[in-house]
Simulated scan of single mutants.
Amino acid sequence: MKYDHTDALNKATELFWQKGYQGTKMRDLQEHLDMRPGSIYAGFGSKEAMFLQVLDCYVEQSLLKIDEYDRLATHPLEALKDFVSGFIFVEGKLENSRVCLLVKTVSESETSQPKLHTHALLGLKKIERKFTALFTQAQQLKLLSQTANPEQLGKWLQMQIMGLVIYSKNCAEKEDIVLMIEHIFSTLRQPS
């Protein structure tokens, strides 16, 4: 039986996101992907190798989403704000928000799976560099102070997203999160 590699990775992503790496057993993957163990090993090598591919795919999809928001936005800060809003309000709904798969992996794997931990950290770094590039563009467009540090802002934005996701799990009010996102970006704008 033939399988679609991309479809299998997407299904594996959902399963790993729900159960985490440690909580996902090979039997879970077999059932969720509707694949035999031999096909999983032939297609991916191992559970760990599959998970590394899942992380890479997640990073690539995140970077593509940021690029898409950038193409549609009038300026880089708007693109970043739209990305954050889209990440928090998945399909427009606060209840669909999930902790970033990379952050989840980092928090669950530090001592038990150092290879996965390091790989997830590298993925976060790639996304952070994309944020930094957009902050640099915003600075060049004079939307940010010339004394702002785009690299620090890239790290800061990641921290803001992590905090918003965790807070949104305890906050039922969409309006509160919308105001927080607005506040995050209003503090960045260069005074006119």
Rank of each mutant, 00 (worst) to 15 (best):
N96L: 01
P150V: 08
L80H: 06
K155S: 14
K65N: 12
K93E: 14
N170G: 14
Y167L: 15
P114Y: 02
R27M: 14
Q53S: 08
R36W: 10
F16E: 07
E175F: 11
N10F: 05
E128D: 10
G43Q: 00
V103C: 13
L77W: 00
A12Y: 02
D34H: 09
W156F: 04
V165Y: 09
L144R: 09
C57Q: 14
A12W: 05
L94M: 03
L164C: 03
G123F: 07
L143W: 04
L15K: 09
Q140A: 10
S192V: 15
T105E: 01
Q18R: 14
T187W: 12
V84C: 07
E175G: 10
I177C: 02
E151N: 10
Y41M: 14
A148D: 08
S186D: 13
F131W: 04
M159S: 15
L63P: 02
E95D: 14
V178E: 12
K19H: 05
L102C: 00
G20F: 00
S39D: 05
L121N: 13
P76A: 08
K65P: 00
S192F: 14
K93V: 09
T118W: 11
E108C: 03
C171Y: 07
M26A: 13
I127K: 05
E175L: 12
F87D: 07
L153M: 11
G20I: 00
M159C: 13
P114C: 02
E175N: 10
K142D: 15
A79W: 05
K130E: 08
R189M: 05
S145H: 11
Y3A: 03
L141S: 11
M162W: 12
E95N: 12
V106Y: 06
A148E: 05
V54N: 04
A172M: 13
L188M: 09
T105I: 00
G154Y: 00
V178A: 05
Y167E: 13
I88G: 04
L144W: 00
L179Q: 15
E31P: 04
A73M: 00
L33S: 02
Q18W: 04
K19T: 03
E151P: 07
G45R: 00
L101V: 03
E14Y: 06
L9P: 05
S192E: 12
F135L: 00
W156E: 11
Q146T: 12
K169H: 06
Q30K: 09
G43S: 01
W17M: 08
D56H: 07
L144V: 06
E151T: 11
F16T: 09
L52K: 10
V54F: 01
Q158C: 13
E173P: 05
S46F: 03
Y167D: 14
Q53G: 11
S145L: 10
S168L: 04
W156I: 02
S62C: 12
V59R: 07
G86I: 01
Q158E: 09
I88K: 02
N149V: 07
E78A: 11
N170A: 15
Q140Y: 09
Q158L: 15
E48Y: 09
C171W: 02
